[in-house]
Design a protein around this nucleic acid. Sequence first.
DNA 1: AAACACGGCAACCGCTACCCT
DNA 2: CAGGGTAGCGGTTGCCGTGTT
Length: 140
Amino acid sequence: MESSSNGLRKGTWTAEEDILLRKCIDKYGEGKWHQVPLRAGLNRCGKGCRLRWLNYLQPSIKRGNFSSDEVDLLLRLHKLLGNRWSLIAGRLPGRTANDVKNYWNTHFSCCKSKARKRESTCSANSPIQSSCYKASTSIL
DNA sequence: AAACACGGCAACCGCTACCCT
DNA sequence: CAGGGTAGCGGTTGCCGTGTT
């Protein structure tokens, strides 16, 4: 399948890889991520295994839409902590840093992440962006 | 019905901090 | 105390699904 120059797989994880990783974590526990690919028999780098576990496979992860309470908390924490996603995620049970970051980038940073691709859709001074920002701050 | 544009999510990359020798 | 290696974090990118024209 696809692989990088050093022979490690990249891209989307398969169900088989998920199973192997989950089994490995069950058996050995979290940590020693550089050893996980060897233990699990995965052709992935340790960083990738950690990311997959943290963002997707952890049993405590809550998936789906953010509740209004969670959004409210997210906004307050972001105001307080800035882009410290891991800290914010730590205060939101069941949410991961990547989750929180993606949600923020999608719903509150409006033009920032997509501007590179679709500059024509809105400018830096776009009223959409400012209204989003106002919305995100006014709730505080 | 097909093509195009946009939104959302999963994953990768590079940098920094921390720990061990 | 210094150096090397590993873990963790944040930013960015690419892909896929959905909506619109």
